Amino acid sequence: MFDIDGVYNSQNDRIWAVDRSEADIKGGTRQKRKFPQKIMVWLGVCSKGVSPLVIFENGTVDHDRYIKEVLPIALKFGNGMFGNDWTFQQDGARTHTHAKSQEWCAKQFPSFIDKDHRPPNSPDLNPLDYCIWNEFALLVKWDTMTSKTTLITALKRAVREISQDVVEKSCASGTNRLHRLSQDKGNYIRY
């Protein structure tokens, strides 16, 4: 979810500081509009690049909308990158784990990691979570946001500027992360 005030995730965004004033200097205090205009986006990533950006300007995304608007783009992107030799993986979002979404994926993708074989909450294994979303957000010029239209334009520009080197490195680190998680019996990776 992105809004014209920026992207914030209170679960992931942390500032290490001695006290509140130091945290504020490092960006801890942000002015936000009361009801900012916002949009939801979907993005896929693989070692060869990022998928086209899917933008949801209005409403929420349920499994029907996910199946109709996202999965065909993911399938076309994957097939374009790898032919018929690739595996589709998604996180544990409700729309992803819905029975109809799971059924569509199992029938359409060359290979698919279903919800029963994917760790339910594992940002350490998802390059989008541990790298790409942050890279994407850093490329947006947040001080130029004045409307939903300027936000969409900025997001479309930023996704094209994600460095292929960053994508390759983030995907390559996945094998190491999987190994570290298996050694730690599935606990989060500590840095």
Rank of each mutant, 00 (worst) to 15 (best):
E22W: 03
P110S: 00
R118C: 11
H96C: 15
P52E: 15
V61Q: 08
P119W: 08
I25W: 08
G59T: 00
A99M: 12
Q89C: 12
T60P: 04
W16R: 09
F88Q: 02
N84P: 04
N84E: 15
H63D: 12
H117K: 13
P110I: 01
K34Q: 12
E69D: 13
K34I: 07
Q37A: 11
Y66I: 11
K26I: 01
D62T: 12
D24F: 06
D114Q: 00
D62P: 15
I73G: 01
S21H: 12
E103S: 14
N58V: 03
F109G: 06
E22L: 14
G28I: 04
E69G: 06
K100E: 11
D64R: 09
T60A: 11
F35K: 14
P110G: 00
P119Q: 05
L43M: 09
N79P: 09
A17N: 10
P119R: 04
P120I: 05
D62Q: 14
P36K: 11
F56A: 04
V45E: 12
V61N: 00
T60M: 01
L53A: 15
Q31L: 07
K100S: 06
K68H: 01
W86A: 11
Q31F: 08
T97E: 02
H96S: 15
K115M: 05
R33W: 02
K107I: 06
S21P: 00
P120V: 08
G80F: 03
K107H: 02
S21R: 10
E22I: 09
P72E: 10
W16A: 03
V61G: 02
T29I: 04
N58H: 08
K107A: 03
G44H: 00
A106I: 03
V41P: 02
H117F: 13
N58C: 01
I39A: 14
Q37K: 10
I15V: 05
M40Q: 09
D91Q: 01
G49Y: 08
G80S: 09
T60Y: 04
G59Y: 03
D114E: 13
T60E: 02
L75W: 11
S51V: 01
S21N: 11
P120Y: 00
W86V: 11
G80V: 03
R65D: 01
A99G: 07
A23P: 15
H63Q: 13
G49H: 05
W42C: 07
F56M: 14
D116Q: 10
Q31C: 06
Q31A: 10
V54I: 15
I55N: 03
Q108H: 14
F82C: 01
W104T: 07
R118N: 12
W104G: 01
Q37T: 10
P36F: 06
L71R: 00
G44R: 00
G49L: 01
A23L: 10
F88R: 04
Q90T: 10
T97A: 13
Q90I: 13
G49R: 07
V70H: 10
W42G: 01
R33F: 05
G78V: 13
F77P: 12
C105I: 10
K107M: 00
K38H: 13
K48Y: 10
F82Y: 15
W16M: 09
M40F: 04
M81P: 06
V50Y: 12
K115W: 12
